[in-house]
């Protein structure tokens, strides 16, 4: 067995963790969403009067959004490598072997990172236009 085969064998061995890996993109969206919501709730209830300017809050959420987007991008890149589309050109993984399963999980995770990226961008849109708590 060559070294490369060996590496592949290891890579395709059963990945208990990889079903969770599928959720990394959406979890990042969820964390960003929940953090933005909680921060706004606390800020508007405890720190700012209804008509106050909330530029600082908007900047913080903006910074958080950038962090979240970068994290999703990194998860997406890792998933994209696992999918290995550039080498195999495969987009359907319909056969029941380890390689198909491995690439399928990469493919699905890549797509989920895409949706999470868009979802996170959407979350940030109100921050661009809304200037006060009411």
């Amino acid at each position: 067995m060559t070294r490369r085969e060996n590496v592949e064998r290891q890579e395709f061995a059963e990945e208990r963790a990889s079903l969770w890996k599928l959720t990394l993109g959406p979890v990042t969206w969820a964390v960003h969403f929940a953090a933005s919501y909680s921060l706004t709730a606390v800020w508007c209830a405890k720190l700012a009067a209804p008509q106050d300017d909330i530029t600082l809050l908007r900047l913080i959420i903006g910074a958080g959004t950038i962090v979240a987007l970068v994290v999703i991008l990194l998860f997406g890149l890792s998933a994209w490598r696992q999918w290995n589309y550039t080498q195999t050109g495969r987009a359907t993984h319909a056969f029941g072997d380890a390689e198909n399963r491995h690439e399928f999980l990469g493919h699905a995770a890549t797509l989920l990172c895409g949706v999470s990226f868009i979802g996170t961008l959407y979350t940030a849109i109100p921050v661009l236009v809304i200037g006060s708590c009411t």
Binding site: L57, A124, P126, C133
Partner: peptide, 20 residues
């Protein structure tokens, strides 16, 4: 009567869910 920004977040997610 929640803060306008909070409403915005949920409005955005409600539109985003249409994609999947």
């Amino acid at each position: 009567g929640l803060p306008a920004l909070s409403l915005g977040f949920f409005s955005a997610a409600s539109e985003a869910v249409v994609i999947p």
